[in-house]
Design a protein around this nucleic acid. Structure first.
Lengths: 282, 282
DNA sequence: TCGGAGATAATGTATGTACATAATCTTTCG
DNA sequence: CGAAAGATTATGTACATACATTATCTCCGA
């Protein structure tokens, strides 16, 4: 029963039946030029969403420029013919999504902050392979229990902490595409010593089991060493994508992993969408 | 604001009489075991934030497991001694951040969705270099106005659309670190033809000027061709990070850019933090 | 002119109330 | 027994009200 995937939400387009804002008094004299036609609410979905769309639309269309001050909540309220609470909810959400900046007493401003917060999603290799319709397999090459500092050192972890060290290879349709070297903090995840990883890959096992609160990533390009080249079935020196990830939970390191993937068999890709734009369909 | 906790944050919990819920008899037998000590509110910040922390804490500590159902708003309300609106705000925000899934009539559940939405921020090269305390420079190597399909083809753009093609190099302390090849849709950004890019780099100029609603990225590792190697001052075959980005605005392509960076001089890195964890300080 | 005290204007939070919406559960009737 | 109709329950939205919190502005006096 916990299947549940996409939350369906969003009231459909009911033909703005109840209490639509027909003839509000319009408060002629005011700050911002009376809004042009395309600032009107569109009647689709909840009021606060309509207002979000209307405001974000003004910004995305460049009508409200970065740094410019918006009408205050009371003005917007009478402008759109809804209560201040409803305006507040819409505007506060847009601010939370980074479109606006609000300062008490000063007002609400279009965020100057350049919207260059591109974000690249990093997915589980198994998911990627499966999504491409290929057969995913993995093989554990090595598995050792030891203490930090004994041959291997995990910088963010105190020496002596018990850790599990894993090494494994990932395959797509039988071709090796990624090498993984992983350390797991046994103080945080002691159960992992009882897991054979016959069926579930370590990354998936961990992600299913341990919540994390933060993750650090470093992505770089490196030339394959002779050893790695042999494992991955490419020539020495082939360009490889190297991903290092450390996840933390409640300020404690959980796992440190190093992925190495063949450059022309694996790419990171994804689309970042401005939160609002998603809902806005702009 | 990280000063002392201080500020009498008002509205402490229960006890305060004014029209609190009509003293319903605590509903003994029910859903969640009466919450242990660490589920109490901590008195820091607004009530809805305290409730967010309390609930997210239960989840992150594994006390409320994935798929499990939470007490309903009314129960939480009497549990924490706040109004349903306040509980609703906290829970709705957690749901919006992906911690919870809510279904009408059914209730609120801890999200099973694996929290594997790692995201990697992709920054402007100029920002990165500057942050490292190095001197950033760039040089335009080529600049041409042409129409799509004439020698260059931008797949997502109709043939014949006027475009500006740029090629430039980015330097850190005088060392070349990134090569950029960029196409700009002149139908969307006609002003760009009047910009010399003497001072501001194209990426920065665009990001400051044109809002975007979505961006596609592809990151891969490639071996430097002889030509690129010469430009970047490395040996042919050196591993390079290749980033392709297309940004769209209102469903129209704005710019398509191809970055190539020397593997050992440039890395992508960043930390993804669960939205809530930020505020939670967990 | 400067500095500070106080007024003011904007957003932020909390509560109450009412009703809408969507599942789920229950009952009833063929 | 099973399907349709209705009751129930939990969340979702909207509005009103009240007060808290903070910058900012104004004005007054040394």
């Amino acid at each position: 029963m916990q299947g549940l995937v996409g939350q369906g939400l969003t009231g459909q387009n009911r033909g703005n039946g109840p209490a639509s804002p027909p003839e509000h008094p319009v408060q002629t004299g005011l700050t911002i030029d009376s809004l042009p036609a395309d600032s009107a609410l569109d009647g689709r979905g909840p009021l606060f969403d309509q207002i979000k769309r209307a405001v974000a639309g003004q910004i995305l269309r460049g009508r409200w420029q970065a740094g410019q001050r918006l009408p205050n909540e009371a003005e917007l309220s009478s402008l759109y013919g809804v209560s201040r609470q409803t305006v507040h909810k819409a505007i506060a959400l847009l601010a939370r999504e980074g479109f606006l900046v609000r300062r008490r007493r000063a007002g609400t401003f279009v965020a100057t902050g350049r919207r260059d917060r591109f974000a690249l999603p990093i997915e589980d290799i198994g998911d990627v392979v499966a999504r491409e319709g290929r057969v995913y397999e993995f093989r554990i090459r090595d598995r050792r229990s030891l203490r930090n500092g004994e041959g291997i050192r995990w910088p963010d972890l105190p020496d002596g902490t018990p850790i599990l060290a894993l090494e494994c290879l990932h395959f797509s349709d039988g071709t090796p595409i990624q090498h993984e070297r992983r350390l797991v903090n046994l103080d945080v995840v002691p159960e992992v010593v009882d897991e054979s990883f016959d069926v579930v890959a370590p990354s998936r096992w961990l992600v299913d089991r341990v919540p994390w609160s933060s993750a650090d990533h470093t992505v770089r390009a490196v030339n394959a060493t002779a050893e790695m080249a042999a494992l991955l079935g490419v020539e020495a020196g082939a360009a490889c994508l190297s991903i290092r990830r450390q996840t933390m939970h409640l300020s404690r390191p959980v796992t440190l992993v190093h992925f190495l993937s063949v450059g022309d068999r694996f790419t990171l890709s994804g689309s970042s969408i401005t939160d609002s734009a998603t809902e806005l369909n702009l």
